[in-house]
């Protein structure tokens, strides 16, 4: 794809030799799907995020790396965490960021994504961070824009930076991801966080278990190399990480579960169920969580919960992604 495909880089003096080389950049100038990232690119993002974390400890939490770059945050769906996280990351790198939220824009007047994008393009932004309710919207945007596009969540498809910050949080707590038993529990069917995490965690060699009511498990999910179960106790047994997914009330109109109360009784993460996992288990949730639906308050606020680490790490991971993508050249 990109010009940095290491498999095609010739080494001077050693024709045909491909020595293990430390990756120093990403291949693409867009981040659309975790599936586009290779293992060493994910490691590079994690290592860079590690360095970025130190910046928030400084008296002046700002570095001049992206000075003069313009980044548009284009959000077609409501978002607090992701949008503020991107915005803080952009500001800490000294980029000029600007938020376009759907409610206050001409999109409510019927303008299409393409027309909005073309008009924004005319103002020459360097990057566009897009959250859209339609799966695939960032791919279409990337195909018509000069700017680099970052997928901040598209429909039921992917949310790559969330998976990266989840992976980064797991690595920070466990040292590595390979070989860990990771249980992902809840509404798998509608979750873009799940899809991105599935690709990321499998690429990094985790043993992934997925659990939810049969109506919310995508058919054929085993083909991705995961073990699916409808019994939470089985998924939690000996787990290193339990990742809870939000029950998306707005998508529950199709009678996927009989009632939220019943869902909690069967699939809610309670203290008793956490006890089946490893003693050093970490509990994750991408937020916003529904207390008493997918997770008990005692667990959410308990000692195993790393949810606020996830939020804190989100800024560092997004800084890493913005920094690494900003250096990549225009369309090749």
């Amino acid at each position: 794809m990109g010009p940095f495909d290491t498999s095609r880089v010739a080494v001077p003096g050693e024709p045909g030799a491909t020595p293990p080389k430390l990756r120093t950049g990403l291949r693409s100038r867009h981040l659309l799907s975790v599936g586009d990232l290779e293992g060493d690119e994910i490691s590079l993002i994690f290592d860079t995020a590690e360095a970025m974390k130190e910046i928030e400890l400084r008296p002046i939490k700002k570095v001049p790396a992206l000075r003069g770059k313009t980044i548009v945050n284009l959000f077609y769906e409501p978002s607090t965490r992701t949008r503020t996280s991107f915005e803080i990351a952009e500001k800490r790198l000294s980029a000029d960021s600007l938020n376009v939220a759907v409610a206050g824009s001409s999109m409510v007047k019927g303008e299409t994504l393409f027309d909005t994008a073309r008009n924004l393009e005319a103002m020459a932004p360097d990057m566009i961070v897009l959250r859209h309710q339609a799966s695939g919207a960032p791919f279409q945007l990337a195909s018509i824009c000069r700017a680099g596009v970052i997928n901040a969540g598209d429909g039921m498809h992917e949310h790559p930076t969330q998976a990266l910050l989840d992976g980064f949080t797991i690595r920070a707590h466990k040292g590595q991801i390979e070989g860990l038993k990771i249980a992902i529990v809840g509404d798998l069917l509608h979750s873009r966080v799940f899809r991105s995490n599935l690709l990321l965690l499998r690429a990094l060699g985790a043993e992934v278990w997925v659990c939810g009511p049969p109506t919310l498990i995508p058919p054929g999910i085993e083909r991705f190399g995961v073990t699916a179960t409808t019994r939470l106790d089985e998924a939690a047994e000996g787990a290193d990480v339990i990742m809870m997914l939000r029950i998306q009330r707005e998508r529950m109109l199709g009678h996927f579960v009989p009632s939220l109360r019943e869902y909690f009784m069967v699939y809610g993460l309670t203290v008793e169920r956490v006890e089946r996992a490893k003693p050093d288990v970490i509990i994750m949730h991408p937020g916003p969580m529904n207390r008493g639906v997918e997770i008990a308050s005692e667990v959410a606020d308990g000692p195993y919960s790393v949810m606020l680490d996830q939020v804190a790490n989100g800024v560092a991971v997004r800084m890493a992604v913005l920094y690494l993508l900003a250096g990549n050249p225009d369309e090749m």
């Binding site: 120093t24 790396a65 003069g68 690494l324 900003a326 250096g327 990549n328 050249p329």
Partner: peptide
């Protein structure tokens, strides 16, 4: 930074 026409970003290490 950002001035080279092509090429990956330099690797950031920890302070």
């Amino acid at each position: 930074l950002m001035r080279q026409p092509v090429g990956p970003q330099p690797v950031v290490r920890q302070t």
